[in-house]
Design a binder for these strands. Sequence first.
DNA 1: AGCAAGATCGGT
DNA 2: CCGATCTTGCTG
Length: 174
Amino acid sequence: MGRVDRDFFLADAVTVAGLLPGMEIVIGDGEKAGRYMITETEAYLGVDDRACHASSGKTKRTEPMYLEGGHLYIYFVYGMHWMLNIVTGTADDPQAVLIRGVSQYSGPGRVTKGLGIDGTFNREDLASSGRIWIEDTGFRTELITGPRVGIDYAGEPWISKPWRFIIRNEKEKK
DNA sequence: AGCAAGATCGGT
DNA sequence: CCGATCTTGCTG
């Protein structure tokens, strides 16, 4: 209960992605300060996972994924959307969990827009940051799993891995 | 230096 | 289904 510490993020991405739904992202200060319950996540499992950016090696963009679990990996896609990812596992083991939805916002691009998250949050540490962290309120509910979205380029078997996790009640949302 | 594609979204 | 919009990473 309460603020989640470093240990939680040291597990692998699939484990963390399955535990995050129901927990809350807390924005400490600023215009968007508040609590947002996570409703949807996806796991990206490291160098072997062709859908994971780290599968093509360490680059300037993917470098934050090589930090210790608990740091944020933020990147910009399609010329307009910031993606919010939480790094998991130990240092130099590039895995991450994409936050695809919170209670008020569905879709990874809308989440960052809604919470005011941009490139300035890249590499932020959820275990020590004063402006963003995760809290476990004890809420637990049934999850729906399914294949990840928008990764057709990855090919099998990655394309079929059931590494998307959604709170059941949120399924009908788009 | 140039180019193709992207962990998306909203409108048609 | 298509266009917006721009960074990244690969090719040459």
